[in-house]
Simulated assay, not measured.
Amino acid sequence: MRMALGISYRGSAYAGWQSQATVPTVQDALEKALSQFVDQPINTLCAGRTDAGVHGLMQVVHFDTHALRPDASWVRGTNAFLPRDIAVQWARQVPQAFHSRACALRRRYVYVLLQSPVRPSLESHSVGWVFRKLNQDAMQEAANLLIGEHDFSSFRASACQALTPVKTLYQIQIHRRPARAQQDAQHDTAHQFEACYWRFEFEGNAFLHHMIRNIMGCLLQIGQGLRPASWMAEVLAARSRDAAAPTFAPDGLYFSGPVYGPEWGLPDRTPAFDWLP
């Protein structure tokens, strides 16, 4: 029997998704919990590997097993053995033809950013941070230059194992949400800067290693007025990692999951989607 699971996790305590021998990973924790639940070894394949510190709103995995359990039992039973920062959100039996990675038509990521003169505290490891005001129009203009099929070598980490740097971005949407006004801090000069949250939504057929974090680095240089929006086209055309900005922090990056065809009957979101700013 082939099962598919939707997994949400906070990536701060893990060295990424993929199993590693000497450091904790999300895959290792999940496979250990699944194996304990059914009392037999379980090996999983995922829709998209995430880096160290990156979170998952709906990672999708599949695995084969002889264990027969109701879908709800796969959720509750596995969660009983998982650490608190990882949880199975849903489970479905799927045909043998289903493959979590190969059947994914698109993949989605969200980057959440705090713009504030004061670094995050409660949101530590959950959001990225900038202390300068950002220009939304300039960032969106630059982001639009990346839409379509391109060679994204300029945004590719040196350790990337992808067979080709050519990927297709379908959309990058940038939204701004003001933070709650602090009425009692009107005379505190540290709070004269208007704090807000930014949400960057990416959707593409696939992504290179560090691709989104490298794009974020460029977008933020443009948003802070350090570079013009047209600079993004120059970076893209250079096809060289040296042309782009430094890799931005992983803290605010969330894998919001793959998009599958309706024939598989799988959910396309979890409650964790509604938790983000």
Rank of each mutant, 00 (worst) to 15 (best):
F248L: 07
A245G: 11
Y109T: 10
Q59M: 01
Y9L: 00
W231L: 01
Q136L: 15
V166Q: 04
A233R: 14
T189H: 10
M58R: 14
E203M: 12
N205C: 12
T270A: 07
S121T: 15
T189A: 10
W74I: 01
E234Q: 13
V38D: 04
L253S: 07
A229K: 01
M139V: 06
A33P: 04
V166K: 06
Q27G: 00
P267K: 03
G53D: 14
S153D: 11
L57K: 03
P277T: 04
E201R: 14
A185H: 15
S153H: 11
Q171R: 08
W198M: 01
Q136T: 13
A15V: 05
N205G: 13
I7N: 00
T65G: 06
I7W: 00
G265I: 07
N205T: 14
E141P: 02
G16A: 08
W129I: 14
P24M: 02
Q192C: 05
V166Y: 02
L30N: 01
F255T: 08
H209G: 08
T247R: 04
Y109K: 11
H66G: 05
S230W: 06
F131S: 15
F202N: 14
L114W: 12
L30S: 02
G148H: 10
Q36W: 04
S154D: 03
F131G: 13
W231S: 08
P95K: 05
N144P: 02
H150F: 12
H66N: 06
M3T: 09
S73T: 11
R227W: 02
F273M: 10
T247S: 05
Y111W: 08
L114K: 15
M3L: 13
G53P: 12
A143T: 00
R176I: 14
A245N: 11
E263T: 01
N79D: 15
L57I: 08
Y14T: 00
V54D: 07
Q173E: 03
Q96A: 13
Q18K: 09
E123C: 12
P262Y: 01
Q192V: 05
S35D: 03
H175Y: 04
V54L: 11
A206E: 13
G77N: 08
A102L: 12
D64S: 10
Q161F: 09
A72C: 05
P117T: 14
Q136V: 15
A29G: 07
L82I: 14
A67F: 09
A143I: 01
Q40F: 04
D71H: 07
G56A: 15
T78K: 09
G6A: 11
Y254G: 01
G261Y: 05
F202Y: 15
G252V: 11
T164Y: 06
D151P: 12
D251L: 02
G11H: 03
R49P: 08
C103I: 10
A47G: 01
Q183Y: 14
S230Y: 08
L57V: 08
A195L: 06
V110M: 13
N135S: 15
L276Q: 10
T168I: 07
M58W: 12
I215F: 02
D184Q: 04
G261S: 11
M58T: 10
W90D: 09
L82K: 14
Q161G: 03
G148R: 10
R241N: 10
G257T: 00
L122K: 05
